[in-house]
Design a protein around this nucleic acid. Sequence first.
DNA 1: GGCTTATTCAACCAAATGGTTGACGATTGT
DNA 2: ACAATCGTCAACCATTTGGTTGAATAAGCC
Lengths: 128, 128
Amino acid sequence: MVDDCPATGQSGCMDARLDMVFSALADPTRRSILAMLLEDDMAVTDVAEPFDMSLAAISKHLVILTKAGLISQEKRGRVKWCKLEPDALRDASIWMQGFGQFEAVNLDAFERFLTDELGEGDEPSLHP
Amino acid sequence: MVDDCPATGQSGCMDARLDMVFSALADPTRRSILAMLLEDDMAVTDVAEPFDMSLAAISKHLVILTKAGLISQEKRGRVKWCKLEPDALRDASIWMQGFGQFEAVNLDAFERFLTDELGEGDEPSLHP
DNA sequence: GGCTTATTCAACCAAATGGTTGACGATTGT
DNA sequence: ACAATCGTCAACCATTTGGTTGAATAAGCC
């Protein structure tokens, strides 16, 4: 009954986590927030600034991202800092790769990944 | 205005597609369907069979998966065949990998991937 | 102490989601 | 021709989602 196989999805115990991760990613605002946090940790107010939306709405988005494990929030003083937490993203990505494994063409993606990351200079350029 | 950078998410034209892919993946029923289709193409009725849910509901799920590009449906005679379409999954997975790229630990995932796929024999064993 | 800033809470709302049922068109088999 | 099977459509329903406001809590500044 433990989730022995990530592909079956049959009542696995990581189902709920995947639910949360994918539905968190399903919103463009939340994806933008993740992209912003990719560059640096940010306070809630600063996260909200570029959006045409109330602070409360952003706060709720951040709660959703936190519950999904995609970010973490640490309160220091009166400001709450948001930090990207790539593990959950990685897990979900791995899950998805399961669906490509049986196709040889899937290797394209990894070639692209590797050349993007390793071929383009030494400093970890975030997004070419 | 074209989506020049997959990380910004700023009004990129692939946003809508990612919306659809991730919200399609956010439902456990739909993920199970994908897992079933991983093993073989299936007719709609056969997809619906293991679920405790009406055929119409499954039909709707399949429409959602189709619109997201995750599966394709081809009607042959009176039965409609559903086939996994891994490209969309791969694209979304690539997008997600962007969030791991700046971390060295991300390479773990790819090591795991490579050993899983290449290390476990010649025949494309679907899911060990 | 009293103002300002940072963030959440609570109540509310419109729209989207995920399901049901029953009727319907299309295709197949006898 | 008739009946059975495959799948979708339409109408409906309950719940969730994503947003709004205004008040409330908490911390820093003068």
